[in-house]
Simulated scan of single mutants.
Amino acid sequence: MADDPADDDAELFRAAIGPVRRLPDTTPPPAAPMPRPRARMAERDEAQAREQFRHALDESLLDAGDALSYRRDEVSPRLLQKLKRGEISVQEELDLHGADTREAELLLRAFLHDARLHGVGCVRVVHGKGLHGAATIASSGMPVLKNLVDRMLRQRADVLAFHSAPPAQGGTGAVLILLAPRRLRSS
């Protein structure tokens, strides 16, 4: 088997590359790092808290005829009464009719940010009563946009107070919002 073509090829290869020297052994690459430990108990507690929060929200949902009302401690009850009666001039308005929840949330955030940026003190947001259309009524029969607006306004630091508008300005289908004055940054 001296005439084996594989032996000829190997001999030709060795002749073509010339003398070979062995490379020193290299150290193996480091092992992949251990995965970071997960805080499984914290994740479970957080999921449980979210679920409890969701149930609490379901219990506190507003109905179509319910009035929205909120004031921070630093706002006097008298000022809230003036807002409730519509005695504070509304400078800007946003109408959320026909918007889905995601769109309404984005519009409301942008509207409030823009209003505060321009020094607007009082705005009206028309959310509707949630009496028409499947998109405006939750499976529980509660108005979606009205409850979304209520939750969002309560969480914003720039909202001092809000109350459902008087009947002539939209009643329980609209809300008047008193915004905190814009603080100027000192240079």
Rank of each mutant, 00 (worst) to 15 (best):
A2W: 05
A2P: 04
A2S: 14
A6N: 09
D7Q: 14
D7Y: 12
D9G: 06
E11M: 09
E11Y: 05
L12H: 11
R14V: 05
R14F: 07
A15T: 12
A16G: 07
I17G: 09
P19I: 05
R21G: 01
R22K: 12
P24Y: 10
P24W: 08
D25K: 15
T26G: 10
P29T: 10
A31T: 15
M34H: 14
R36G: 07
R36D: 12
R40V: 08
M41D: 14
A42V: 09
E43G: 13
D45T: 08
D45P: 00
Q48W: 09
A49S: 11
A49V: 06
R50K: 14
R50W: 09
A56Q: 13
A56G: 05
D58T: 10
E59C: 08
S60I: 04
S60Y: 02
L61W: 03
L62Y: 14
D63W: 06
A64P: 06
G65A: 12
A67Q: 12
Y70W: 15
R72G: 05
D73S: 13
D73V: 08
E74G: 03
V75S: 07
P77D: 08
P77L: 05
L80C: 07
L80I: 04
Q81P: 00
K82C: 02
L83S: 03
R85A: 12
G86T: 06
G86W: 05
S89K: 14
S89C: 06
Q91F: 00
Q91K: 11
E93H: 08
D95F: 01
D95N: 15
L96P: 01
H97W: 02
G98C: 02
D100K: 09
D100M: 07
D100T: 08
T101F: 01
T101E: 11
E103F: 02
E103R: 13
A104P: 00
L106V: 06
L106C: 06
L106W: 04
R109A: 11
H113I: 04
H113W: 07
D114S: 15
D114N: 14
A115Q: 06
R116A: 10
R116L: 04
G119P: 03
V120P: 02
G121W: 00
C122F: 03
R124F: 00
V126M: 09
V126E: 04
H127F: 04
G130C: 04
G133N: 09
G133P: 02
T136Y: 08
I137G: 05
A138F: 02
S139L: 10
M142E: 06
M142V: 03
V144N: 03
V144L: 10
K146P: 00
K146M: 04
D150Y: 12
D150C: 08
R151N: 05
L153K: 06
R154L: 03
R156V: 00
A157V: 07
A157E: 13
D158T: 09
H163V: 01
H163D: 02
H163Q: 07
S164G: 10
P166E: 04
P166C: 05
G170S: 07
T172L: 00
G173S: 07
A174P: 01
V175R: 01
V175E: 01
L176G: 00
L179A: 11
L184I: 12
R185D: 13
R185N: 12
S187Y: 13
